[in-house]
Amino acid sequence: MTRGVAVQLTDLRRTYSGVNALDGLTLHLEPGELVALLGPSGCGKTTALRCLAGLEDPDSGRVEVGGKDLTKVSTNKRDMGMVFQAYSLFPHLTARQNVEFGLQLRKQGSEQRRRRSAEMLELVGLSAHVDKYAHQMSGGQQQRVALARALAIEPQVLLLDEPLSALDAKVRTQLRDEIRRIQLEVGTTTLFVTHDQEEALAIADRVGVMRSGKLLQLAAPQELYSRPADDFVADFVGLTNRVVGTSRGTTAEALGASLPLLPGSATEGTVTVLIRPEHLTVTQDAQGSAVVISSSFLGAQGRVVVSPGEDLQQVLVQVPSAAVADFAPGDRVTLRPVGAPALAVARG
């Protein structure tokens, strides 16, 4: 039952007292798609979402939903379901009354409202808590009610403004997966704003990385991770080692190996090569030039910190967790890239 509509943000600009919160943001969401906007705080991701909701006026630019220009339409006529960071439930209403709030505004009869709210609360797994007030529910339950309330009005677009950031780690992953399940079920076009890269990668069809009001890259999670457009994206999404190397056009020499370069890399001279921890290996070698600084066991995997040699930055290597015990601080090792494509940037 896909009833999603396309969303188009065109050249949005917004300035707060001289600071560009949005600097010409253009973003397209396909019908039914879930796009996550990811970036550090102050990058403009929340401003973008609020402009789409109508809670913020862009200085210039256009907001279109389903082909209709909504730039000048006020929030209450935009038909958006929104879930806030926290504390957005009306405290004087029960969970059910919260969910029915939007339905009541749409002049639905009490019988119809009741059916719909029961259905929505069941969808988010809260059938047992319909008559509870916000202060009687946990943070996770409150966010579920907020989600049910936003979806109950069958909005054109679902907006999620860091809905998980106030929750405990465990509840966060659980609710994250559930949001994705529900979103796929109802098929509503969704914009999800977060500063947590793991969350964005796990939930979204496509992830947009923002910085200083600009969209740096918009791509599917795998592509964003394996082919970052620049070093900011590479750094922000996943862990990255910065290694000195020499660029030779389509390849680069680094750590004694030749690595294929990703598009957009610097093509000549001394460069910084960005290599993921899982794209490096370490082996015990009494004649090796690298030295183990520390090793740690992280459950599913292990991590070894290695100094490749004098004057070089330490690097992080991912190893199987069973191998952690093989490396003690001070051990001599050999460090080798596995040869996966990497990004090289000019040394600044």
């Binding site: 909701a53 109508g54 809670l55 006020s74 929030t75 209450n76 006529k77 935009r78 038909d79 958006m80 379901g81 929104m82 806030f84 957005s88 009306f90 709030f101 939007g102 505004l105 749409r106 907020a146 309330r149 936003a150 009005i153 907006l159």
Partner: peptide, 9 residues
């Protein structure tokens, strides 16, 4: 803001 997005004036 929640009231507004739900359609309230």
């Amino acid at each position: 803001e929640a009231a507004e997005t739900l359609g309230g004036s």
